[in-house]
């Protein structure tokens, strides 16, 4: 039992480390560009280009250079980090049952509304609205991602033991 708890804790810490690393990677191009490391900035931006449109006018700036992802994606990833940090205070990382799906829908509702209203030109969204609604979605996402990945590692662990 203790072994299982430790394994779940280890997986949680691994996820946390990955999320921290991912959030650091977002600001790497800005830092590199301000320090004259243009190749690194270019490569990291290229990697993130597969998952984000990276429009400058929709991105936050640090060190007078845009981040690797847009404001909404930045909000989602920072939210994911906040959610992952507070996760053990709210749920046990051994619990592999995800919360009811309605909470994920609620978490993604603000960002969906913000995106849809902006696209239909009903209400122009701002950097702040994109990031804030993304943040809510990211926090919610953490509570579904962590139990699912812990469960995945448990299954893989069991599979390797049976081999």
């Amino acid at each position: 039992m203790l072994k299982q708890k430790n394994a779940a804790k280890l997986v949680y810490l691994l996820i946390l480390l990955l999320v921290i690393g991912w959030n650091i990677a977002i600001i790497v191009p800005s830092y590199c560009e301000s320090n004259g490391s243009y190749l690194s900035a270019f490569l990291v931006r290229k990697i993130f280009s597969y998952i984000c449109h990276q429009k400058t006018e929709r991105s936050f700036f640090i060190w007078n250079a845009p981040l690797a992802v847009c404001a909404r994606c930045s909000g989602i990833y920072i939210g994911l980090l906040i959610g992952s940090l507070f996760y053990p205070l709210i749920r046990s990382y051994q619990d592999t049952n995800s919360p009811p799906r309605i909470y994920l829908i609620i978490a993604f509702l603000p960002t969906t509304l913000d995106f849809s209203l902006g696209m239909l030109h009903i209400l122009e969204n701002t950097h702040f609205s994109r990031a804030l609604t993304g943040l809510i979605a990211g926090i919610g996402l953490a509570f579904y991602l962590i139990p699912a990945i812990v469960n995945l590692f448990e299954e893989l662990n069991l599979w390797f033991r049976n081999q």
């Binding site: 990697i47 597969y50 049952n97 995800s98 994920l104 996402l141 699912a148 990945i149 469960n151």
Partner: peptide, 19 residues
């Protein structure tokens, strides 16, 4: 790199959906 990113995010989508 594109395949790695796409398959990683696809797997995450699958894992979340499984629950």
């Amino acid at each position: 790199i594109g395949i790695i990113m796409a398959s990683g995010f696809g797997a995450l989508g699958g894992v979340i959906a499984s629950s």
